[in-house]
Amino acid sequence: MAVRRPERRWHPLRSIPGPGARLSRHLGAFALTVIAAAFAGIILIGAGEALALLSPDMGMVLSNFGVLFGMSFLMSWLGHLPLAVLLNVMTRCGMAGWLSVALAGLAIGAFWAEALDLWPVALIGPILALIHGAALRRPLAGRTAD
């Protein structure tokens, strides 16, 4: 039986059709996304504080995005649950390219941005969705397919 090998490049729209990822893979991707967002938040806050010495307004904007990234773990599960379902459907249909994943994250982020009346959520949604999707593409140690 041939083992499905992951694509070397992540196509914008297409992917190799196959079964969706298991729940454990989605939980691992969610954990990686939360950790990456927390580190990005810390870096953005530090860069914002450094930039505030030159331009207080730009520094405050950058720091605010850092706080939003750093605290996104509190509510990001609201987006990752529907994203996991969408990613499984998109993978089965062969449409789990990076642009498709980013658009799915934008749609989910826009929904929650409207529901929570917090517009930066729509900007963070595609970034977190891309991290989640990239984590699912990465094979586990010693395995080429899930």
Rank of each mutant, 00 (worst) to 15 (best):
R4Y: 00
A21Q: 11
L62P: 02
F39E: 05
W98L: 02
E7L: 12
S63P: 00
C93V: 05
V121E: 01
L123E: 02
S24C: 05
I108G: 11
W112I: 02
I131L: 10
A134M: 10
A2C: 02
R14N: 08
P139H: 09
T33F: 02
G133P: 06
R137E: 08
G125P: 00
V67C: 03
A38F: 12
V121H: 02
G79Y: 03
S100W: 00
F39Q: 06
W98T: 01
L68G: 07
L118V: 14
S24Y: 03
V34C: 13
G94K: 09
L136A: 09
L78W: 05
A84I: 09
G94P: 06
M90Q: 13
F65W: 12
A122Y: 10
M1I: 11
I16R: 15
A31F: 09
G70F: 08
V101C: 10
N64Y: 11
T33E: 03
M58Q: 12
L44P: 06
H11L: 08
F69E: 01
G125A: 04
G59D: 04
I108A: 03
I43Y: 07
D117C: 03
F69A: 12
V34K: 03
L13F: 15
A141V: 12
G97V: 09
H80T: 06
R143D: 00
I35Q: 08
G105Q: 08
P17N: 03
A29K: 02
W98F: 14
F73M: 07
F39R: 06
H132Q: 14
A102Q: 02
S55G: 01
L78F: 08
W10Y: 02
S15A: 14
L51C: 01
A52P: 01
A36F: 11
D146K: 07
M1R: 08
A104N: 07
G94E: 03
A110Y: 02
R5L: 14
A104H: 01
A31C: 05
S15I: 04
V61I: 15
A21N: 07
R4E: 05
I45C: 12
S15M: 03
L87T: 10
L140P: 02
L44Q: 14
V67A: 14
I35Y: 00
H11N: 13
T91Q: 15
I131H: 06
N88L: 04
T33V: 05
M58Y: 06
G109T: 08
S55Y: 04
S55P: 00
I131K: 08
A122E: 05
L99V: 13
S55D: 15
T144Q: 12
F30H: 13
L53S: 15
L78G: 01
R137Q: 11
M58W: 11
L81M: 14
L136Q: 07
W77F: 15
L44T: 10
H26T: 13
A110T: 11
L81G: 09
R14W: 13
G142L: 09
D117K: 13
A110V: 02
A110N: 01
W119F: 12
N64C: 05
M58F: 05
S63A: 15
A129I: 11
D57A: 15
S63F: 05
L118F: 14
I35W: 03
A40N: 02
L87N: 07
A135L: 07
L83Q: 02
A84L: 04
L140C: 00
H80Y: 09
G79T: 07
A47G: 01
P120Q: 10
